[in-house]
Design a protein around this nucleic acid. Sequence first.
DNA 1: GCGACAG
DNA 2: ATCTTGTCGC
Length: 244
Amino acid sequence: MKPKANHRWDLTPREARQLQETLRPQLVLKPPRQHPQLVAGVDVSVTGPRWREATSKAAVVVFDYATLEPLEVVTASMPSPFPYVPGLLSFREIPVLLTAFQQLTREVDLVMVDGHGYVHPRRLGIAAHLGLVLDVPTIGCAKTHFFGQWDEPAEAAGSYTEIVDPSTKPPEVLGAVLRTRESVKSMFISPGHRMNLSTALEHVMWCSTGYRLPEPTRRAHQCAAGKTLEELHTDWQRATAHHK
DNA sequence: GCGACAG
DNA sequence: ATCTTGTCGC
């Protein structure tokens, strides 16, 4: 998969925020009609104390949507191009992700990103930004709160509450806090590009197979740490056999 | 000015 | 994100 609308990434924080405002109106908050065939999970890890000497490592894992069988794993590595700045995570993590995506032999239908999407001060979290660049449906799936107000959902799996921005004229619904599994810490879900909230929640629940993190994100995190496709496939076969 | 702040 | 050990509970 290659970028369909790439742009410069070596920007100052101020320029980066301006670019986010420029890209914002290009977001499509409507999902495709047909169900996805291939879903990908992505994750980035950064090593090193000072970002100018740090290395970014990315992993992209592709699954068959219907069975969640892992089909392909690609990784990439490069010097960290940007420091961590709240609100500008995409400028730190997307460059190495694009390098990984270019190695993919398949065109995926859906990408689940480790971070927020529409839940963002300028509605352009990393999931939304990546979706725009690749022109692919994306979902933001974050482990912690970043922006907006919300209440804790009930303990049952599938329970959720809305995340709203109270500063808008009427308060805008940005995403949802979702209990992916009973009695675990909830996840922060929001649409990225070519997606809406209700469909995003359905996809995340479908991909949540007994762990707090949905399978694509959980596996991508493991692969960024060195796990191979062969190991993922062995795990999948064991889990599939045990589930029958 | 103060607190919050994805990964 | 990363630095880090053992420990409580289903």
